[in-house]
Simulated scan of single mutants.
Amino acid sequence: MTGRAVVVVLDGFGVGATPDVADSDAGWHTLEHVAGDAPLQLPTLASLGLHRLAPRAVEEQQLRGAYGRLAPVHPGADTYLGHQELMGGGLSRVELKLMEDVGETVRDALVAAGHRVEPLVEGQSMLLVDGVAVVHDNIEARARLNINVTATLDDIGFDELSEIGFVVRRAVNVSRVIVVGSRGYDVDDIRAHIVDRGEGQVGVDTPGLGVYTEDYQVRHLGLEFPVERQLPTRVIEAGGDVVLLGKAADVVRCTGAVRENLVPTAEVLDAAVRHLTSMEHGLIVANVQETDLAGHEQDRDRYRQVLRLVDAKLPQLLEQLGPDDVLFVTADHGNDPTSGSSRHTREYVPLLAYGAAFQPVDLGIRSTLADVAATVADLQQLAELESGESFLKEISCSST
């Protein structure tokens, strides 16, 4: 294999609703709504092509990258499934279930593991475990994708809470089991933040509960997929290094990868620069989670601040790229902070590609997020992936 590839995933960064959403959701556009009335000054991202995807939202700069949109294949708008798709596919094992479908199975598994289990609220699907942890439908993504395990860290340690999450994970085949903990609330506060999304989806409004503080801890327990034909495993098999940063450390599967589970954006991107400096050849996947958190909180100002920080940090990565190295900036789903809901939004995601041999061309709308991984595999002369179509020829041979 040759060269190094860096994939920066701006979690929850959409560029317009996909055609398959309901008419009432057709106005979703995370980037344009974050910008509001005045275009954002993001010179680095604009030069990579972001301005071309939303001219009213981002001030124009001289173009130096290829750009386009990626259409999600995975159902709904989900971080874990989005990352599986980005890394080359393999989504067939996912079962779409609510707690009302699997609650009895989850309860039996927890009891067998020695836990005390009771309903959080009589007549509803949520379970209270050991008097402190609540197992409930995730209400921040499409129904039936994820189950959360939520508690206050004032009552239980995060490792102990995670053990409850592992039991739930083994019991169900939903996309993710998400373990969430923070401080400053109790079980009564959790009860007070129950939201019924309709059609059986009942869970805890974690942004409203106030979990996203300096005490916030999260663990994403994704459904195990056959990863032999995903990009990270292909890189390892070819003798390269794989580094997974931020949420990618949780949601991307790869034996032999270096993992740093970081949340602060500056730490994630500084770590990417550090690993790139010492890497001979391989792959870095860096997930910026704070964009997604701002979307969940419906906080446009925070979202803008995170984007500006990303834009200020990207030049450090670009400076480290050699003639055989490439940078991709993309996302896993949308999270429009003006949607009126803490749920993810199903949108196209940006495709920004930069390399010394790349031409700054319009790649149009690609049919799957997996095209990023397929292109990296093509560049690094790796074996074929589960899914995705390389666009290497289009950016290497086309002209503006």
Rank of each mutant, 00 (worst) to 15 (best):
E394H: 12
T30I: 08
Q201C: 13
P337M: 06
Y80K: 00
V73D: 02
H74E: 11
L363H: 12
E122N: 13
V242D: 08
V15P: 03
V167E: 02
P55S: 06
G210Y: 02
V134R: 09
H29W: 04
G89N: 09
L223D: 00
L70T: 07
A257W: 05
D101Q: 10
D101H: 13
E59Y: 09
V306R: 08
R346E: 10
V94F: 05
R69K: 15
V34D: 08
T30P: 10
I194Q: 07
Q61F: 00
A266W: 01
V134D: 03
V174G: 04
V94I: 15
L127R: 04
R4D: 01
E122R: 06
D20V: 06
L209F: 08
P350F: 03
V326N: 02
L221W: 02
R169M: 00
A26Y: 09
L209S: 02
H333T: 13
V202I: 15
R107Y: 02
G388H: 12
Q289H: 06
L314P: 15
E389L: 13
D196S: 04
M99V: 13
Q230E: 11
T2Y: 08
Y185M: 13
V134N: 14
S387D: 10
S278A: 06
E389Q: 13
L293C: 13
R56H: 15
F391N: 14
E228K: 11
R52I: 14
D159S: 08
V263H: 06
D205W: 15
L276D: 01
P72L: 06
G90T: 01
G256T: 07
R219W: 11
V243Q: 03
T213S: 14
D20H: 04
I139S: 01
R169K: 11
H296C: 05
H220V: 07
L379A: 04
S342K: 14
K247M: 01
H275A: 00
M1S: 14
A26P: 06
A22H: 05
A22F: 03
D78A: 00
T330R: 10
D250E: 12
D188G: 09
G16M: 15
G88R: 05
V174N: 14
H333G: 09
A171L: 07
D324F: 06
H136M: 06
G103S: 03
D332G: 00
H220G: 05
L392M: 15
S278E: 07
V263N: 08
D101G: 12
G14M: 11
Q62M: 14
D23H: 07
Q84D: 03
V129S: 11
V177K: 10
D311Y: 09
G27R: 13
